[in-house]
């Protein structure tokens, strides 16, 4: 067996955040966590079907990156997409309704857990196969550059954030798209959520160079390693990358070291990861850590944080009611959406 990569000693970034910004991040992380907990409950109660991949533990990455974007920027995700969609602004009720297969779902009940889309929120998807979202995200980034440089639209400075996991970085589309993004200086962030495991394949067993951020260098692209359990650190790295992209200076590869607190999907018995490993990462829970940070830096009081949690719990409960009460798609619409009508 290969030696497991040791976690680097991360330097805490200087605190440059207002109370208001801190609470936006906190609320977004709580929303992601509570939403996924509700999904697990609904799945085990037989109300939700298919493959459901939860994001618990990785919230600092979604919130840290997506809350550094503008609302007209683009987000592209994988099969583990619920929380990216929520951070991008897709309402919890429409995501929950999608998981219930309802007409009010963000993909009209046609997509399901792994195919969340919202053109209104520039949420490009929900891509269920490994790596296939990266070229699509590249296309959105190309489009921004095309509008700016081929069509002369100076306002076309949108950035695309493309999320994927450590397992994807052994796939050709990853390398092909890093190449094109660097070649054409496209405004894109490649965000690797390295949670150490591709289902049962440990990252170190799958790759000859486990330090993914180093793979950027051969493309002449900045590659940055960041503590994916620290939302402030992720945010700092993301803001810098977004600024570079928006300025036309090209892509960045961000490797966020993180961990999923649940199995690969709710169908995964999760028997391969050691208890010691899980406990070590649970002790680094990004939400607890950020709560302590906010209190310690006088950015929020515990009472305020509890208000946030209560508010989000109500939103999740309302989303569930909305999903349950929503209609199924009409059988008459079985063929709807195959083709666009010109």
């Amino acid at each position: 067996m290969v030696q497991e990569r040791t976690l680097p000693q991360f330097q805490a970034p200087p605190a440059q955040i207002s109370s208001e910004e801190g609470l936006v991040l906190y609320e977004d992380m709580i929303l992601g966590r509570f939403f996924e907990d509700k999904c697990a409950e609904m799945y085990y109660r037989g109300k939700m079907f298919g493959f459901v991949h939860l994001y618990n533990g990785q919230e600092a990455v979604s919130s840290g990156v997506i809350k550094s974007l503008r609302s007209d920027d683009y987000v592209c995700s994988t099969y583990r997409d619920h929380v990216h969609a929520l951070s991008a602004g897709v309402p919890a009720k429409n995501v929950m309704a999608e998981l219930f297969g309802k007409e009010t779902g963000c993909s009209k009940g046609r997509g399901g857990s792994m195919h969340l889309f919202s053109s209104e929120h520039n949420m490009l998807g929900g891509f269920a196969f490994i790596g296939e979202g990266i070229p699509v995200a590249l296309g959105a980034a190309f489009q921004s550059r095309y509008r700016r440089d081929a069509l002369g639209d100076a306002s076309a400075d949108q950035v695309t954030a493309c999320f994927f996991g450590d397992g994807t970085t052994n796939n050709g589309q990853f390398f092909e798209c890093l190449n094109m993004a660097a070649l054409w200086k496209l405004p894109i962030l490649f965000v690797v959520e390295n949670n150490k495991w591709a289902i049962g394949m440990a990252h170190e067993r799958a790759t000859s160079q486990p330090e993914i951020y180093k793979k950027a260098a051969v493309f002449g692209m900045p590659g940055i390693e960041v503590d994916g359990m620290d939302v402030m650190a992720v945010r700092a790295v993301a803001q810098e990358a977004v600024a570079r992209a928006r300025a036309g200076e090209g892509p960045t590869l961000i490797e966020a070291l993180t961990y999923r607190f649940r199995g690969h999907s709710l169908a995964d018995p999760d028997e391969l990861r050691s208890k010691a490993e899980k406990e070590a990462w649970l002790a680094r829970d990004p939400i607890k850590r950020f709560e302590a940070y906010l209190v310690e830096h006088n950015l929020a009081e515990e009472g305020t944080l509890k208000e946030v949690r209560d508010r989000i719990q109500t939103r999740i409960d309302d989303a569930l009611t909305f999903a349950e009460d929503s209609p199924e798609p009409s059988p008459e619409d079985l063929y709807k959406y195959i083709f666009a009508e010109s």
Binding site: V136, G172, C177
Partner: peptide, 21 residues
Amino acid sequence: DTPIAENSFTGMAVGAAMTGL
């Protein structure tokens, strides 16, 4: 002119088409 990367440049076209090109 694209590099020889058929699956990726085809996916890139899909993303460009989704966003209005």
